[in-house]
Design a protein around this nucleic acid. Structure first.
Lengths: 343, 343
DNA sequence: TTGTAAGCGTTATCAA
DNA sequence: TTGATAACGCTTACAA
């Protein structure tokens, strides 16, 4: 009933069939109060019969609004983005927006290109997890005056909207939890420091040590790209170097994924978790409770970050608000069974 | 240097500064061979200085091409889509397209809305994992004559482009593998049958049993939404019902995620894998090798599906090809340590 | 080699 | 209550 062979139906064609002007059709379809109810009904019926759907490019060109939001992530490979994407998509759908998703692959130039892609495509706003906290791309977004929210990012300037998880506190609380359980030598498996999140995470770890009168041993800090097999290999190597004297008794990981690599290595080497080594993760991903033993980890409320980001961004767009908002969301430790008391 | 306070720069403004007509600017920016090299250089310099970027809505309206592809997935919650999204994004980026991503939440009406959203936004093509194989939405896409590829889908009609994983063979090979290891009573943890993939998966399982002269016991087939904790609960319940006589010795799961739920339940009940129960997954997700024991699973080459889909779709778009393509990709069993021989 | 003008499908202003 | 018409920013014949 609905679809004819005709390629694409426009309001002009509807107008012809309905015997009214195309501007009347436009108004009727937009529920303009001035249009006669009968005409409206008729127009809508015909539009429906012809299988009409609006050309949002034309609308966008006129109205300067596309109902699409650009989401620029720095690394789609990172599984904690799954949750982010899911929740952002969900929230945007609720508000009748769609998501243009793009990945910067942790590369500044790609990110730059991505920003221009989004601008060119006329997005109403941008949600971005920047590659680096001190690249020119951040200023670029501000200069172009596109509505934006930064996530997973700690800004140096004011006038930036951001929603971020307090990564420092995440590491701090996890480290203190380990310290309270008697651990004095804690291996930190972290990502590269040019990632703002990793740098903050490391700060938290160090602060906790200092606060508790413990020495910071640089050799216990690993900064690598946090791919699961890289972590696995790193642990294997570390253990090969010092198989006898345990120089650390606990391992704090910057992600649950990393913890998975740690688990595998330790088990392969015949160690028991938490008896031989305690492990703490970060993210509280869906698989954490299903690990063996269930992973004690810091819950990073990414769903909240996503929800807030979308909500605030859309608010800004629809109400043309100029106030900047800056939200910090606090992570919380989720205790399971991968840490034990020692001494 | 690059960004002025001016809101949005258009070719008209560039024209004014350059002292040429705006159509000359347009041609210069598009590297039209007819334009004088000096003019071109000058125009490009000015465009750059003014921080110009094209308005792709206008371009799209004229050229009927937006360089964006709509990706409609049926359930973003399913972790096997992570890989799909990653690879699709990756492939599209390589070809200078961007992805409009939307989730149908396994709901036909949402899917219908999503298709119209994509059409309205003028996507050059659609990659869709349909909610159901017999909904009207499939015909809708064909009627609207938008270039498309169906994934995770087995079509009833011809003239449909699809790339799909042979789910039937996946289940068949996994089941036969278990049978060869002496298992005669195999519990199937499957999703709901209205999902084409699940229906095919079940067929494969049944075919393997019949082929090997084994009875099909309906009570050994579970059709539930494959959420990790639902599976976990299901196994707990099953075991509560029959704690003594093992009515099955192996469990075939429709996803690695389901297998994770199975692992947790079995371990909690004090069973050893694979000694007490053998388990096989499906998807070969990133965490499968990191499970304990490493999960034997069927590799579903989603990256290949994604790569093929994007490649063929873009081919179609850019060369206006009308031939339909239909690709089947074959899964392969990845043997790890979650299955053992019995009897 | 450059400029003029029409048109893509809408919205919005003004006149009828 | 409806209809002309201009405009959004670009591409593309066609004219100069």
């Amino acid at each position: 009933m609905s679809s004819k062979k005709t390629k694409k139906v426009t309001i002009k064609q509807i107008a012809e069939v309905a015997g009214v002007s195309f501007s009347t059709v436009a108004k009727a379809l937009n529920d303009d109060v001035l249009i006669n109810k009968e005409t409206k009904k008729k127009v809508k019926r015909i539009a429906n019969e012809l299988g009409y759907y609006p050309n949002l490019l034309a609308t966008g060109l006129r109205k300067k609004s596309t109902k699409t939001i650009g989401v620029i992530l720095n690394d789609l490979t990172n599984p904690c983005f799954i949750e982010t994407i899911q929740e952002i998509e969900n929230q945007l759908s609720n508000k009748n927006y769609t998501m243009l998703l793009i990945d910067s692959n942790l590369d500044i130039d790609t990110e730059n290109k991505n920003i221009f892609t989004m601008l060119s495509k006329g997005v109403d706003g941008i949600i971005i997890a920047p590659v680096s906290s001190n690249s020119k791309n951040i200023q670029l977004i501000l200069d172009k005056e596109v509505k934006s929210v930064f996530i997973d990012f700690i800004p140096k300037y004011k006038n930036i909207n951001y929603v971020y998880v307090n990564h420092e506190y995440a590491a701090l609380s996890a480290t203190e939890y380990l310290i309270k359980h008697g651990h004095k030598n804690i291996l930190l498996i972290n990502g590269p420091l040019h990632l703002a999140a990793c740098s903050k995470f490391q700060n938290g770890y160090i602060k906790a040590l200092i606060k508790n009168g413990l020495a910071v041993d640089k050799s216990l800090i690993v900064n690598k790209y946090i791919k699961i097999d890289i972590v696995y290999q790193k642990i294997m190597d570390l253990q090969k170097d010092c198989p006898i004297n345990k120089i650390y008794t606990a391992i704090l990981c910057v992600s649950d994924l990393a913890a998975m690599g740690v688990y595998k290595a330790l088990k392969e080497l015949g160690f028991l978790i938490p008896n031989d080594y305690s492990v703490v993760g970060y993210d509280n991903t869906f698989f954490a409770p299903f690990m063996d033993p269930p992973l004690t980890t810091v819950n990073s409320p990414l769903n909240i970050v996503s929800k807030l980001s979308v909500g605030l961004l859309i608010d800004q767009i629809e109400n043309d608000i100029r106030l900047t908002f800056q939200k910090k969301v606090e992570p919380n430790l989720v205790v399971r069974n991968s840490v034990c008391k020692i001494n």
